[in-house]
């Protein structure tokens, strides 16, 4: 379980996140949503140990500020929003960078590529791929790093920064299925999302950030309410029900901040 208590992040003199308290459970997808500048990526960076912060963040009971880089790499993997690379690595070479132990099977790289729909891309150069393909190569690398969602009785975690931002709708669904599968098999997932509809469809728990703070955390049904979303995003949003208990959101044309 991911437990965050009184998290405050300052960059220079600016406070980016103020006194956040939230949790994420294993076996679930926890999505972080909110308007641009609300601090979503900063939150993810703090949770993955990239930024220093005040407060406490524990992952599976480990205080992440006191856990070694090597140990953290064994229990969680992180997918950045975009990963430009300056040297001509092949796709296979990039995915193999996720092998943090020599004991890891070399076949995993090809299997992971198949799962993200890039079978046959092994020999292609990473730099030649489109943004969406690069994103999926990186997802394959991340999957190799935490291959088993549960290892030695303890769950592993995926932290994803907008994993579907540069993908078309078909690949968005494919990636969401991979992430859901990871959670169903006992892993924990925390992901920053921009697309509220996709979040409503796939997330088990939603953290709505606004103005440096957690405005609400709960199931999509609890969090995606007209009043909460409209106030967080500063425009009128209507939440609608689709058949079979689904949900979709429509931004109202007459946008007004107040």
């Amino acid at each position: 379980m991911l437990n965050v208590r009184n998290l405050t992040v300052n960059l220079g003199r600016q406070t980016i996140l103020e006194n956040l308290t939230l949790t994420a459970q294993v076996g679930q997808i926890t999505a972080v949503v909110g308007p641009s500048g609300a601090g979503k990526s900063t939150l993810l960076a703090a949770l993955t140990g990239d930024l220093s912060f005040d407060g406490s963040v524990t992952l599976n009971g480990h205080d992440i500020a006191r856990t070694s880089t090597t140990r953290l790499a064994e229990i969680r993997a992180v997918l950045p929003q975009a990963t430009p690379m300056s040297f001509p690595f092949t796709v296979l070479e990039v995915v193999r960078m996720g092998r943090i132990h020599k004991t890891m099977n070399n076949r995993m790289a090809s299997e992971a590529l198949t799962r993200v729909g890039l079978h046959g891309f092994e020999g292609r150069f990473y730099q030649e791929l489109s943004g969406g393909e690069q994103q999926r190569v990186q997802l394959a690398r991340v999957l190799v790093q935490v291959w088993e969602p549960v290892a030695q009785g303890s769950s592993r975690w995926l932290f994803l920064d907008e994993p579907v931002s540069s993908l078309d709708i078909g690949h968005q669904l494919q990636v969401m299925r991979i992430i859901q599968d990871f959670a169903v098999r006992g892993g924990g997932v925390v992901m920053v999302m921009h697309d509220l509809n996709l979040t409503a469809m796939c997330a088990d728990s939603v953290i709505l950030l606004s103005n440096k703070m957690v405005m609400h955390q709960g199931s999509p049904r609890d969090t995606f309410r007209d009043d909460l979303l409209s106030s967080a995003y500063g425009c009128k949003i209507a939440v609608n029900r689709a058949p079979e208990d689904g949900m979709f959101l429509l931004p109202q044309v007459a946008c007004a901040a107040s």
């Binding site: 090597t70 953290l72 969680r76 992180v78 950045p80 960078m97 996720g98």
Partner: peptide, 18 residues
């Protein structure tokens, strides 16, 4: 150095003491 080509943060995420 291989890991570092992913960027400093990502290198840390795969266990490299950057």
């Amino acid at each position: 150095l291989n890991g570092l080509t992913l960027g400093e943060a990502a290198a840390g995420h795969i266990g490299i003491r950057v």
